[in-house]
Design a protein around this nucleic acid. Sequence first.
DNA 1: GGATATCGTTAGCCAAGCTAACGATCGCGG
DNA 2: CCGCGATCGTTAGCTTGGCTAACGATATCC
Lengths: 156, 156
Amino acid sequence: MSRRPPERGQRAGKPEALADALHSASIHLLRTLRKEDDASGLSAPRLSALSVVVFGGPLTLGQLAAAEQVRPPTMTKIVTGLEKAGLVKRAGDLRDRRLTKIEATTKGQRVLAAGRARRVLLLTDAVKGLDEKALVELTDGIQRFREVIAAINEGR
Amino acid sequence: MSRRPPERGQRAGKPEALADALHSASIHLLRTLRKEDDASGLSAPRLSALSVVVFGGPLTLGQLAAAEQVRPPTMTKIVTGLEKAGLVKRAGDLRDRRLTKIEATTKGQRVLAAGRARRVLLLTDAVKGLDEKALVELTDGIQRFREVIAAINEGR
DNA sequence: GGATATCGTTAGCCAAGCTAACGATCGCGG
DNA sequence: CCGCGATCGTTAGCTTGGCTAACGATATCC
């Protein structure tokens, strides 16, 4: 959902408003970051996948798809894009495709690092307006955020 | 970015890790909710736009596009989809398209309410595992989350 | 050695985002 | 009173990302 008149639950006393706030905030953060990430020429899904490859070591396409919670054909497209951009490469057993591992190139590592630096710049500016207390609240909140998502994904 | 080995900053002491955590959590929440929202036949962008229309009263396409932070052509598509689904209608001055207002149908209101109920159910389950303290932290965190996003969007 | 299982890819669909170009309407100035 | 520019929406056309269904290649197992 979205930003709308402030009369609607800012403090989110009800789970309903909380759900709405979570959804809304997520949508807007991604829309905001998407623009910034454009500077690296990488969309959010590609950036996300690249991140997994860089930090998750070499892994198969299936594993990557599972990690990103998308179907294999979707991941094929993403990996193909990353490969064309020279950010990842296929290694390992190239004959048996089920065993080929996807790994990051050094360029991929560089680009990822640069993208993060860019985002950090943005965030740093945004954080300037927050005091220490707010920072702590944000950090704690994200942790809870993660727990909620994990709970949803597990309980089904 | 994405879920990856837990050794990477859970508590987000650095802004870098905080940015990463925000991004990651947002991506995953949306991916998770997308599935649920499928049940209403509405994608996240449509649901978001519908929400703005329902709660933001009748408004022009341009205003809606601005609220949703997308370009007018994109919003044209979304509104067209919602219109075909009978969730919104165009009213006001139909001759001068610059003055036609978009407003929700009663069906639109119903569907939105149903979608929210569905999400709330999910969230309620997820929240069962959280104690009061965690709930407060989450609520506070979201508020900060919003502030950060607002700060980013303003400072440019 | 041939059936089977496993995994990736191809094909083909749709939604959502963009830019560029077009169109329609109003308001204003001459 | 008539055209001209400004304003806003839409159309056209492209890319990416998501899906399912079908196909292909490889290894394994009997």
